[in-house]
Design a protein around this nucleic acid. Structure first.
Length: 371
DNA sequence: CCCTCGATCAC
DNA sequence: CCTCATATCGAGGG
């Protein structure tokens, strides 16, 4: 059977959730903001509804700039509430799971799904199924989304992006080449500004041009994996399976300091709530971490990390604080520049069940001592 | 093979 | 004026 893949994207998700909760917002610009706490309005825009976008408000622009663009429009600025959106997201993903065989959630507001068997490899039925999914989500949550249907994940994602909000785009296999050829390379998932610029230097600006590149030269410029990916994706021959994702294998938090600093005590005191929050979350998830990183973002916005991997996974809050301090001291000592933002990341999370006990470890050590 | 680190993507 | 969270890749060193 020929594979049929779908990609679902919730429209202007965070802002739409706020509209559902408070429908009087619907006819006004709505801006979801990440306040950094430095000054009153320091921070950036996370998401904006389409009315706000009409005024030039985009993700990642400073809140102050968004306020200027929306002066005297009656716009609403709402601080981002991640947990609230996660709860809604989980309910939407459940609806999707009830309708298809495999769901691969790739973000809080998007997921791939496989409809090969559900549609018996028929594009007409796949589209009907997508229409029903859209309706189910609208009825249950009052949320619109955009769905793309295609022969693989790359085409499905590009299709969901093609028409939105509230879009449904199906690309049949015989339409795939036409769909791709004249599009700009940066429309390919995984190709951002850096890769697009490097492709431009090679004389490649459209996906059609990319598809005519030799695999060898792509691998030479971008490495093995990305070379193969660009080669397949641009030809519409990507074969990546839709796979359920397991729970995230890392947890991180990053904060903006009140004022730039390279004093470790000062930085640590502001980082402490974040460390404790992370500590709480790994306890809730019943996991331990094997790798710890401290992240520093300097005044020039350059990023440096210091990390350490441990023999034995830990979940103790006091140990985490001590290890964080050590890494932070190393990091701060390695540059004369002040730090603007600081973060902690725990990786290689191991569930208590799969974790080796301390006694296992001691047995190993004794064994080695003899061998 | 493992570890560390930086880069990139994209939210 | 400059957020936040996660995954993945590759280089370089051991």
């Amino acid at each position: 059977m020929n594979r049929i893949v779908g990609h679902l994207d919730l429209d202007y998700f965070f802002a739409q959730v706020e509209e559902v909760e408070n429908p009087s917002l619907k006819n006004l610009p709505v801006v979801i903001c990440v306040y950094s706490g430095r000054t009153d309005d320091s921070g950036v825009v996370s998401t904006a509804n389409y009315i706000a976008r009409g005024y030039g408000v985009r993700s990642a622009i400073p809140i102050v700039l968004a306020k200027k663009k929306l002066e005297a429009t009656g716009a609403t600025f709402i601080p981002l509430k991640r947990e609230k959106y996660e709860t809604v997201s989980e309910r939407v993903m459940e609806i999707l799971r009830s309708r298809v065989d495999v769901v691969e959630q790739t973000g809080i507001d998007e997921a791939y799904f496989d409809v090969t068997t559900g549609s018996q490899s028929d594009y007409e039925s796949a589209t009907n199924l997508a229409t029903e999914i859209k309706r189910d989500i609208l009825v249950a949550e009052k949320l619109t989304c955009s769905i793309g249907i295609g022969q693989n994940k790359v085409i499905a994602k590009m299709a969901s992006d093609f028409r939105k909000p509230d879009g449904l785009t199906m690309i049949r296999p015989d339409e795939t080449t036409d769909f791709l050829t004249s599009m700009s390379v940066d429309k390919l998932p995984g190709v951002g500004s850096k890769t697009a610029r490097r492709l431009g230097e090679l004389g490649v600006t459209t996906i059609g041009e990319l598809s005519r590149m030799e695999l060898d030269s792509l691998e030479e410029s971008f490495g093995h994996k990305i070379g193969i990916y660009l080669h397949n994706a641009s030809r519409g021959t990507d074969e990546e399976p839709v796979l359920e994702r397991s729970e995230s294998s890392q947890i991180s938090r990053i904060i903006t300091l009140k004022t730039n600093s390279r004093n470790t005590n000062e930085i640590l005191s502001q980082l402490l709530p974040a460390i404790e929050d992370i500590s709480k979350r790994i306890l809730e998830r019943k996991v331990s971490y094997r790798s710890l990183s401290i992240i520093g973002i300097y005044t020039d916005l350059s990023i440096r990390t210091k990390s350490k991997t441990f023999e034995i996974p830990t979940n103790d809050s006091e140990t985490l604080k001590r290890q964080s301090r050590e890494l932070l001291e190393e990091l701060a000592g390695s540059s004369t520049m002040k730090i603007r933002r600081a973060g902690v990341r725990l990786a290689e999370l191991k569930s208590i069940a799969e974790q080796r006990s301390l006694s296992d470890y001691i047995c190993d050590q004794l064994g080695e001592a003899h061998g």
